[in-house]
Nucleic acid binder design. Structure first.
Length: 575
RNA sequence: CGGGAUGUAGUUCAGUUGGUAGAAUACUUGGUUUGGGACCAAGGGGUCGCUCGUUCGAGUCGAGUCAUCCCGACCA
């Protein structure tokens, strides 16, 4: 490829709406072009990167006995009605009608298609286990796409589905897929990706992990214990708190005129929020019925855990006068009985705390749940906090970090095989539902994530395994006959040797040429110029500045191939 | 769906009390330069998001609408 005919302009300045580095570099470097909200076209450099990522995904999926298949992007709504998701998923699923008025959907994930493909083809236990995967376009009508390729509405994804005849076999394969994912991220140059426990969300199923690249611009919050290695998405993280034992005091109503927030009440009563009980109000989306969560005053509600507990979607409550509650003074004692009340475990060991009295301008002090309210069920619905107690090793070691989810794996169980009636005949002559696992990686997000953690102030530094080209050949002063001749010969020689080379043959100033090369982030660079040719040499260097040396032109091919091999080997897993 | 912001040249942005549409950069041509975003000269390129209104006259004022971005809510 010659830069003179490469489409995709490189800019000095990024558009003002790029808020993260990877987005800015991918726009400035001529990688992507926005087509609409959350929809992008890719220029040649980005396409070459995603193709390489896809090839790594293909090789690794094939390595764990995957069969590559292809599902349709557009599916009949009736297929999604079989699983129940046509109605259960919100407007993220893009629905439309075909010319005959039939419901259609754009695929946002392909469990239904996978089951549809497999159910007539795997009627005997002898076919199992098997895994099918595809690399294909997904469309999710996200309420809000952002960050360039980090969150888009249309994106390419590798999604895999495995089918098993026992939970044990699923777990065996799940471990293999887990290891396969570690290999994928290592090969793509981001070995620092970590797996965290996750909430299964709408996918159903029990065990699931997300693979997270830790970076401050990440959209997910991750709970980590550096002591024992416990890692969890904060949505799924246990929150364990320790309450100092306090003396048991009698329940007492106190006048707290116009003191409503935890801070105000605790300030007025000269106590700490950890000795108070906070009420957080929600309403079920279905009927707007109230759900009140009580938890220790300094904590916050983990809404994912709340939803999972009450098995309903909720939103922050809009309080009206006829609800029989007084905001600012809500407490566990004396509430109307038609309200769902959830007690967080943080309250379990608290002896004498402050809580609202359900009466305007009054709070209780000295409240004790067991004594004043009787037996209640405590559930964990609080967010984990920095410095909190690790649920595994028990130390006060929890740290909170941000991460980008670059992949995930789920143990789905029989949710889809049952709802879509996929059965096989087992060796004991009985019909059974296969047990499924599913495994996803977003290709474009992976490219953006790699850029996010692998760049300097001039541009991306692509790992050799996914770089758009392996060698960037720069000819400074193409008007110089010798430069032209040496560069042309090197370009041809590198291509003959199977090296992926991009050749900047434009007659432009060195500054522009080097800036463009930095933006293209190709790991190895060869510069041909009159200055070095005077001593019979060309310059050979690395984009990450790890080395720079003079070579004779005839040594370039051999040295480039050696460096490529070394750099690739450094990103190749041992097993 | 809430809160905020922005829509003017390919890109980044100016545009005064309402009076013929501007710059930088990129692009084209010619010349001079030549190792980290050079210079001179001459060019091409815009229904000022859209609609309606006020006005002799609207990029500018008013109303509406659409779109994009950011923060939330949401999110296999």
């Amino acid at each position: 490829m010659k830069v003179s005919t490469l489409l995709g302009e490189r800019f000095k300045k990024a558009p003002g709406d790029c808020t993260i580095d990877s987005h800015a570099f991918m726009v400035r470097g001529g990688y992507i072009k926005s087509v609409g909200t959350g929809v992008f076209s890719l220029y040649q450099p980005a396409k070459r990167i995603t193709k390489k990522i896809e090839n790594i995904l293909r090789e690794e999926m094939d390595r764990i006995d995957g069969q590559e298949v292809m599902f349709p992007v557009v599916m009949p709504g009736s297929l999604w009605q079989e699983s129940g998701r046509f109605d259960s998923i919100g407007s993220e699923l893009l629905r439309f009608k075909d010319r005959n008025g039939m419901d259609m959907v754009l695929g946002m994930t392909h469990e239904e298609a996978a089951v549809q493909l497999a159910r007539d083809a795997a009627g005997s236990y002898t076919k199992y286990p098997f895994m099918i995967y595809q690399i294909q376009t997904k469309f999710r009508d996200e309420p809000r796409s952002r960050g360039g390729l980090i969150r888009t509405r249309e994106f390419t994804m590798k999604d895999a589905y495995s089918f098993h005849t026992s939970q044990e076999d699923l777990e065996r394969y799940y471990k293999i897929a887990y290891r396969s994912y570690e290999r994928i991220f290592t090969r793509c140059g981001i070995p620092q990706v970590v797996a965290v426990k996750s909430d299964s969300g709408m996918m159903g199923g029990r065990v699931s992990h997300e693979f997270m690249l830790l970076t401050d611009i990440g959209e997910d919050t991750i709970v980590i214990c550096p002591d024992c290695g416990y890692r969890s998405n904060s949505e799924a993280a246990d929150s364990i708190v320790h309450n100092e034992p306090t003396e048991i005091r009698p329940l007492e109503e106190v006048h707290t005129p116009n003191y409503k927030t935890i801070e105000e009440v605790c300030g007025f009563l000269h106590t700490n929020p950890v000795n108070s009980c906070k009420a957080v109000l929600y309403q079920r989306n279905a009927d707007d019925s109230l759900v009140i969560v009580f938890l220790r005053g300094d904590l916050e509600v983990n809404e994912t855990k709340l939803r999972n507990h009450i098995k309903a979607e909720v939103h922050a409550a809009v309080v009206t006068d006829n609800m029989g509650i007084c905001p600012g003074f809500i407490g566990p004692k004396g509430l109307p009985s038609n309200i769902t009340v959830v007690y967080d475990e943080s309250l379990k060991t608290m002896n004498s705390f402050v809580a609202g009295a359900n009466k305007v301008d009054y709070h209780y002090v000295g409240m004790n749940i067991a004594r004043d309210l009787g037996e209640v069920e405590f559930v964990s619905v609080a967010k984990a906090v920095e410095g909190g107690i690790c649920p595994v090793c028990g130390k006060h070691s929890i740290t909170i970090k941000r991460g980008i989810e670059v992949g995930n794996i789920f143990q789905l169980g029989t949710k889809y095989t049952e709802s879509m009636n996929m059965q096989y005949l087992d060796s004991d002559n009985t019909l059974k539902y296969p047990i499924m696992g599913c495994y996803g990686i977003g290709v474009g997000r992976m490219m953006a994530s790699i850029c996010e953690v692998s760049h300097d102030k001039f541009g991306p530094i692509w790992p050799i395994t996914i770089a758009p080209w392996q060698v960037h050949l720069c000819a400074l002063r193409t008007d110089n006959e010798e430069v032209r001749k040496v560069a042309d010969e090197l370009y041809a020689a590198l291509q003959r040797a199977g090296v992926e080379v991009i050749f900047d043959d434009r007659s432009i100033s060195a500054g522009v040429m080097f800036s463009d090369a930095d933006l293209l982030g190709v790991p190895l660079r060869v510069v041909v110029s009159p200055r070095t040719l005077e001593r019979g040499a060309v310059e050979f260097s690395a984009r990450d500045k790890s080395f720079s040396e003079d070579l004779k032109p005839e040594e370039v091919v051999e040295n480039a191939k050696r460096k490529i091999a070394e750099m690739t080997a450094a990103l190749t897993p041992e097993d």
